[in-house]
Design a protein around this nucleic acid. Structure first.
Lengths: 198, 198
DNA sequence: AACAATCCGTATCCGTCGTTACGGTTTAGG
DNA sequence: CCTAAACCGTAACGACGGATACGGATTGTT
C-alpha cells in the first residue's frame, strides 16, 4: 500500500475509533467495529497496531503531534510575548477540550494498565509544560513579568484549564462554547501579569 | 437485616468495588466479583442497587456525602476566614485526589451513558463551589479580600487543583505525597489575596 | 415456634469482545 | 506479466460480564 493511501486508511481508522468511543465508551469500542467502520479488516488492524492498546497508543501519539504542531504554529504567529502566550493558551484549551483529546482521556481512564495514561503524559502534558515555560521565558526576558518560568507556566495552565478536563471527560460538562477558550486565555494571561509583576 | 448490619454490608460492598476498579478498571469490575469480595450474592446486589450503574451511582452519592461532611467539619474548625479557606481547600484536595474519588472519576469516564458523570457533578462539584463561595464571602466580609465571591471561589479551586484530577484519573500521576495538598492550598490562598486585594 | 422475606452460593443464558485464522481479492514489486 | 505480500470479509474460539433464577440457609416478625 502506498504511503499516502496508508495515511488515508490510518485516518479512516482514527475517525472510526473516535466516533465509536464517543458513542460506546472505550470498553464498548471493539476492534471489529473499528475495522468495519473504517472499511478495513481485523487482520489489518492487528497487523498494523498489534492489539487494541497498541491502536489507542498510536492514536495518543498521533493526536499529540497534531496538538504540538498547532501550538507551534500559534506560538510562531505572534511576536509579542504576552500575545503569543495568550493565543497559544487559547489553542491549547481548544484542543485539550476537543473531542479527540477527551476521547483519549476517557480511554486512558478506562485502561487499568495505565499504559495509555503514561503515553498521554509523555507525548502531551510533559511536552506542553516546557513549551509554555519557553513562552513565559520570552515574556520575562522582554521585561513584561518576573519570576520562575516553570512556576509561572504551571500557574498559567492552572488558571487556563482548571478542572475543565476531568469534568469534560466524565461527561459532567459539554464541549465549550466558541470563544470560551479565548476568554479563559485572556483572563489567565491578565492574572499572570498581576501575580508576577515586574 | 438490621440497619447497622446493612450499613456494614454496604461498606463491604463499597470497599470491594473500589478495590476491584483500582485493579481491573470499571469495565473489568463485574458485579459477581464485587459480590464475592463483599461476601454477598449477586441477587442481593441487584436487589439493593438495581444494576451495575445503580451500584456506582450509589457509591458516588455516598462518597459525596463523606466529602461534604469532611469539608463542613474543616470549615467549622477555623474562625479566621482565610485560614478556613486554606484548610478546607487542603481537605478538598486530599479527598478529590484520594483513591475513592479517583475511582469514581474513572468509572464516570468509562460510562458512555454520562449518568455517573452527571451524578458526580450534581452531588460533588456543584455543591463544592457554593461552599467555597461562602468561605470567600466570609473573607470579603472580614475585609481580607475584595471582589465577586463566585469568581474568587472558582479561581481558588483552579489554583488549588489545576489539572491534577485528570492526570490522576488517567494514571499519569501517582497519589500526591503527604503535605502536598497543604502546600497547594497555602499557595492558592496566598495568590487569591494577591489577585483580589482590598 | 411458625412463617415469610431476604440472603447466599451457584448455575444458567445470552451477548459482546479480544484475538486468530482462512479463502479469495487486490496491490505492490521485480 | 507473474508472484508474493497485504488486505478484505467472514468465521471461529474462548473468556468475560450483565442479569436472572433456584434451592437451601438465615434472619426478621408476629
Amino acid at each position: 500500500m502506498r504511503e499516502d493511501k496508508r495515511a488515508m486508511k490510518r485516518e479512516m481508522i482514527a475517525t472510526a475509533a473516535y466516533a465509536l468511543i464517543e458513542e460506546r465508551g472505550y470498553a464498548g469500542t471493539s476492534m471489529l467495529a473499528v475495522a468495519k467502520a473504517a472499511k478495513a479488516s481485523n487482520e489489518t488492524l492487528y497487523n498494523w497496531y498489534g492489539d487494541k492498546l497498541g491502536l489507542f497508543a498510536a492514536l495518543v501519539e498521533a493526536n499529540a503531534q497534531v496538538v504540538s504542531d498547532a501550538l507551534e504554529a500559534e506560538r510562531s504567529a505572534h511576536s509579542d510575548p504576552l500575545e503569543a502566550l495568550e493565543r497559544t493558551g487559547a489553542a491549547l484549551c481548544r484542543m485539550v477540550l476537543g473531542p479527540r483529546a477527551i476521547a483519549l482521556n476517557r480511554a486512558a481512564a478506562a485502561d487499568p494498565t495505565g499504559a495509555l495514561g503514561e503515553a498521554l503524559a509523555r507525548n502531551g502534558r510533559d511536552k506542553v509544560a516546557p513549551l509554555f515555560s519557553g513562552l513565559v521565558r520570552q515574556a520575562i526576558d522582554a521585561g513584561r513579568i518576573k519570576g520562575d518560568a516553570g512556576e509561572i507556566a504551571e500557574t498559567f495552565i492552572a488558571l487556563l484549564l482548571a478542572d475543565t478536563q476531568i469534568r469534560r471527560a466524565t461527561h459532567a460538562t459539554p464541549p465549550p462554547e466558541p470563544g470560551n477558550c479565548e476568554a479563559r486565555a485572556a483572563k489567565a494571561t491578565s492574572r499572570i501579569c498581576r501575580l508576577f509583576p515586574v
